[in-house]
């Protein structure tokens, strides 16, 4: 089952001559975890806005092509309908939070949709538990740390139980430990609920071994699309502003002198396994 189908998508913001997207084709299968990579200004955020309907509903511009999400043509579907199927978490959690308590923030969108009280309560409980912030429910979102705020933002999207969740650089303002915790939360949501996920992020170290697929954008186009191992192994990624996890560079460096790794590792754990396997082979 497809959750996303993008065909020949070109978009130029009104007032700007150069298109931000130039002929994008992309299919995401249900349950897939996709990392969207590319330098600033490559069109990542614009593509995400096309998937949740912010474009064309709230941004003026010239659009060609077709975007279908969860079986609905985005340009013909009102955003309040889309929002029940596609959730988006932004870079800066503070902009998404506004209520007096965490609990109210998570309930807000559900109330807007006119859900029954009991259902709202059930879903708020579920979302807070899923993200691991039940203990914060009566706190004010504004006295929380950046990482906790981002989890509240994730919970409020998750409460809608969308089929597809989009993340636009969700950790860029967080310190490393909070960033890891947010990424782990996203990965757990995917595993537990089979939610399809598209995340735009620069922190490849935290994501390389968790995602199914890496889509690389440059100048409004998709220039690479494949499994993380296939994409990160390519040396010519660097000039495009695509970070490669350090373990990949280490493994390539080692292999130049000694053939240790048969496949490129994506995490310190996999690197360790490669080295220990090599040594074990020597003993045998």
């Amino acid at each position: 089952m497809e959750i996303v189908r993008v065909e020949g998508l070109t978009f130029a913001y009104s007032g700007s001559e150069a298109p931000a997207l130039r002929g994008i084709n992309l299919v995401v299968e249900e349950g897939e975890f996709v990392l969207l990579l590319g330098p600033s200004g490559c069109g990542k955020s614009t593509l995400l806005r096309c998937l949740n309907g912010l474009i064309p509903h709230f941004y003026a511009g010239r659009m060609e092509g077709r975007v279908v999400v969860a079986g609905m043509e985005v340009s013909k579907t009102p955003t309040y309908v889309l929002s029940q199927h596609v959730g988006m978490v932004f870079q800066n959690p503070e902009n998404q939070l506004f209520s007096l308590t965490v609990e109210n923030d998570v309930a807000f969108a559900l109330e807007n949709l006119g859900m029954p009280r009991e259902e709202i309560k059930r879903r708020v409980d579920f979302a807070l538990r899923a993200v691991g912030i039940e203990g914060l429910r009566r706190r004010s979102p504004f006295e929380l740390s950046g990482g906790q705020q981002q989890k509240v933002a994730i919970a409020s999207v998750l409460a809608l139980m969308p089929k597809l969740m989009l993340f636009d650089e969700p950790t860029s303002s967080l310190d490393p430990l909070s960033a890891k915790s947010v990424i782990d939360t996203i990965s757990r949501i995917r595993k537990e609920f089979g939610t399809s996920i598209v995340v735009a992020e620069h922190r490849v170290e935290l994501l390389a071994d968790k995602v199914d697929r890496v889509v690389v954008m440059h100048d409004g186009r998709v220039i690479r699309d494949g499994r993380p191992r296939e994409v990160f192994v390519q040396e010519e990624m660097k000039p495009y502003g695509i970070p490669v996890p350090k373990v990949v560079s280490m493994a390539k460096g080692v292999n130049k002198s000694l053939m240790v790794f048969n496949e490129v590792p994506l995490s310190p754990e996999e690197f360790e396994r490669g080295i220990r396997g090599f040594l074990l082979d020597k003993v045998r």
């Binding site: 590319g38 330098p39 600033s40 870079q91 650089e169 860029s172 620069h202 502003g241 695509i242 970070p243």
Partner: peptide, 8 residues
């Protein structure tokens, strides 16, 4: 470095 990509 906040918000900067790897080239930057």
């Amino acid at each position: 470095t906040v918000g900067q990509d790897s080239v930057q």
